[in-house]
């Protein structure tokens, strides 16, 4: 089990690096693989990963690079450069 969790962490760091290097498609394959590993090993994706990957296009989100983070009344909106938005409540 521990190996699966470590793999997910590693894949996420490399996905973020790939986005910084401008290789979004490579980042997508890493994020998809991390999700697949979580699914097969019945693990929940860590919140840092589920919030900073796009549900629509699977790319890792890096604010300032391909993601926009905006605070609004009671929720934060994270937008991907593909056009999808995620909203998370805060207090």
């Amino acid at each position: 089990m521990a190996i699966a969790a470590e793999r997910i962490e590693r894949l996420h760091t490399f996905a973020t690096e790939a986005v910084r290097a401008g290789e979004q498609d490579r980042a997508r394959t890493y994020v998809r693989r991390a999700r697949r590993i979580a699914e097969r090993n019945r693990l929940e994706l860590p919140r840092s990963i589920s919030r900073f990957s796009c549900d629509r296009c699977d790319v890792a989100l890096v604010p300032g690079q391909n993601a926009r983070v905006r605070l609004q009344d009671g929720h934060v909106v994270i937008s991907c450069s593909c056009g999808s938005h995620d909203r998370y409540p805060y207090r």
């Binding site: 089990m1 190996i3 699966a4 793999r7 693989r33 590993i37 097969r40 090993n41 019945r42």
Partner: peptide, 14 residues
């Protein structure tokens, strides 16, 4: 398959 290598020696009880 890359995602399945992790499962080859136990780990998952399923």
């Amino acid at each position: 398959r890359p995602a399945r290598r992790t499962e080859r020696t136990g780990g998952s009880q399923w």
